[in-house]
Write a protein that binds this DNA or RNA. Structure first.
Lengths: 196, 196
DNA sequence: GTCTATAGATCGATAGAC
DNA sequence: GTCTATCGATCTATAGAC
């Protein structure tokens, strides 16, 4: 058998899955060891702060993914309407059409919330602000955009809860579909008031 | 010091709060003992099945509350529009305007989901069906009502997640407000097509 | 019916060999 | 850098006195 990983960044996705499946408390070091194929020694070599540092690193990795693939795209979009559609697709794919939960949301409802409250706050605030920024660029007023952004993010989280509880990924897909259908339509700039 | 409770039903609300605050895994028997003022002996007298039976009883109590105060009201309403408003008020009060989480939703996102999957499924299915039944009675078609009911329940859950993560109960209140404003308006039956 | 004491398992974390 | 052995703390559950 080969020497396996030896890169901290390679371990993070495996760690993330372990926390997603079992929660922070439920993911014991024995379980994490199985999931990563690493012994306690290696784990503590990569994460001297123990389990808390593991979870913190995972949250950072998730935040970074959303920053790159969602938030940044929304904030810098020249065509906000298509950016909203594109990031909605990415979101649907990320959550595997409702079969995967949002670890940040799960942490928010658990007693680990206080431990990671800064990360949770930052993640959802950035998400909400990025969607609002894109909506504003489509012509919505600032209060409109803020309300709609909040509703979109909250709808995604609620859909994940319900999809998980009822074991029905279709709930998530339908929710994404409703969000998509209510997005502002891009105005074709070449014609005035084009029909379509 | 008095003999304290000695009624199983008196312990349930205290148990519920303990599970809400610390989650299933996080609520240790030591913590539960403090929250209820009962020793292990008394706890195991009331709940021979241990912690699992405690959580199960709490879920049953929650389900019963919603059955009485929400589901039944919605299903049997003569005036579905006002029943929807009334149960929305009750929901807002139950979740203390967003300061209290939904234990069923929290369980859905944790690894205890499988253990209580039947209870979770039943709770959310009943909720969704009851809202849909009321919406149907207001004149919505069956598919319309089903989609809207799903969106309402999911919106409540998502609002609780976001409110908790951002430590901002206002998110929940705003979400309830949006739901309320989109509810079908009662038609005044005495006049035809009264202006409102 | 309620308590204390404690069994037996598992937890996160550390030490030290290689 | 990775492992195994093991620590002390904490967990759920049980036993038995009152």
């Amino acid at each position: 058998m080969a020497r396996t990983v030896s890169e901290r960044s390679d371990v993070l996705p495996l760690l993330a899955e372990a926390f997603r499946e079992h929660g922070y408390e439920g993911a014991s070091l024995a379980l994490i060891g199985e999931a990563t194929g690493l012994g306690r020694g290696s784990l503590y070599h990569f994460f001297p702060g123990g389990k808390e540092e593991m979870a913190s690193a995972v949250l950072g990795e998730i935040e970074a993914w959303f920053e790159t693939n969602i938030f940044e795209v929304l904030r810098t979009a020249e065509h906000p309407e298509s950016a909203l559609l594109q990031t909605l697709d990415a979101t649907e794919e990320y959550f595997r059409s409702g079969r995967r939960i949002c670890l940040v949301g799960a942490f928010a409802l658990s007693d680990t919330r206080d431990r990671f409250s800064r990360a949770l706050r930052h993640y959802f605030n950035e998400w909400r602000a990025a969607v609002a920024a894109a909506l504003t660029k489509t012509g919505q007023t600032s209060p409109e955009a803020a309300a709609n952004a909040e509703e979109i993010v909250l709808g995604i989280q609620g859909a994940l809860v319900l999809a998980r509880a009822l074991d029905d990924p279709g709930i998530f897909s339908r929710a994404i579909g409703r969000i998509r259908s209510r997005l502002p339509k891009a105005r074709t700039k070449r014609r005035r008031s084009g029909n379509g």
